[in-house]
Simulated scan of single mutants.
Amino acid sequence: MDSMELFFISLGTAVVIYYGVKLLLFSRMLFPKLWFPLSKSFFTSMGEWAVVTGASEGIGRAYAFALAELGMNVVIMSRTKETLDQVAKEIGETTGRTAKVIVADFTKENIFSDIEDQLKDLNIGVLVNNVGILPTYIPSKFLEFADLDKAIRNVINCNVKTVAKMCKIILPDMTKRGKGLIVNVSSGIASVPFPLYTLYAASKVFVERFSQGLQAEYKDKGIIIQAVAPFGVSTRMAGFQKTNKVTLSPEDFVKNSLQYVRAGDKTYGSICHIVQGWVLQSVPLRVLYSEHVLQGLQDFVKKTQRTSDSASRAAVENGSRSRT
């Protein structure tokens, strides 16, 4: 056997082993309860309280309810007090747990000292950094935003700064106690450079890299830090799309994602979104970046937004009639 033949045999063997390992790692995601088991007391063992940002609706609200159902008291944070109070009431009535409300507009400056004061002395075991905003609901090129400076400021404050600041507030006590869980919600579209969502996707790349770096720094302290990157979830941000095999309800997504908290420093949160991530990363960028694809994306979101707006108006009108 000559050296060239030996080289190709060795190369082929390495490729087979590489993809075999990848297939094994992927197969683990099909059975999270088997590969990443959690005890019934896993979450409550982290601490008495969970803190969830952006908890007035959607994914954040679902995380707050799920953690309360698992036995934790929850601090729910958003900018709308009336909605938060209603969520807190429902959590108390349905789970028997305590829900503390903190009103905060994360697009603003200089809000974190007050938040830190209100969280002081709480035994916080779980932090879910969920709050985030799109600069615009309709996908747009960077220079086409109506107020670009405001869009930049709001996205950075809400999607980037908040994640770092909330970790700064809560992580120190977790390290002292040697346990804790931090879930930072990213987005599936951050898997590749994504035109028309450039600013939003870039902010979510920060969430992922920040989470992965923190996990490397604090894993030996007993802390679990994970980025969760969902694709389609039926929320206001996604135009309340109808749920199906790939677009999950917030409750179903959160239920699935909590099964993966021991699965590594990044997860897509559900098997259908894991497959979507693989597909997106396999699509040649020249296809994704074609004018036909981008225009189709804009048209789809506009149609979805019109449907969502019509449904919202109908709900308001029906509510008005019922009150009269």
Score class of each variant (00 low, 15 high):
L6V: 10
S10W: 09
V16W: 13
V21W: 10
L23G: 14
S41F: 10
F43V: 07
M46N: 09
G54I: 02
A55H: 09
S56T: 08
E57R: 11
E57W: 05
E69T: 10
G71T: 05
M72T: 03
M72V: 04
E82R: 14
D85K: 04
T94M: 10
G96H: 04
G96I: 04
G96L: 06
T98V: 15
V103W: 03
D105Y: 05
N110Q: 06
F112D: 12
I115E: 11
E116P: 15
L119G: 06
L119T: 01
K120P: 10
D121S: 12
L122H: 07
L122R: 06
L127T: 02
G132D: 08
P135E: 01
I138Q: 05
P139A: 02
S140P: 09
L143H: 08
D147H: 08
V160Q: 14
V160F: 13
V160M: 15
V163W: 09
K165Q: 15
M166K: 03
P172T: 00
D173Y: 07
L181D: 05
V183M: 14
S186K: 02
S187E: 03
S191P: 03
F194S: 15
Y197T: 11
Y200T: 05
A202N: 05
A202Y: 03
A202T: 05
F206A: 07
F206V: 02
R209V: 00
R209M: 04
F210E: 00
F210Y: 03
S211F: 01
Q212I: 06
Y218W: 09
I224S: 14
Q226C: 04
V233R: 00
A238L: 11
Q241A: 12
T243V: 10
N244G: 11
V246Y: 07
E251F: 08
D252Y: 02
K255F: 09
K255A: 12
N256G: 07
S257L: 01
D265C: 12
K266C: 02
I271N: 05
I271K: 03
C272P: 09
H273W: 01
V275L: 02
G277E: 04
G277T: 01
G277N: 02
L285V: 12
R286S: 15
L288N: 13
Y289R: 15
S290R: 01
E291Y: 11
H292Y: 15
V293L: 13
V293F: 11
V293P: 10
S320L: 15
T324L: 13
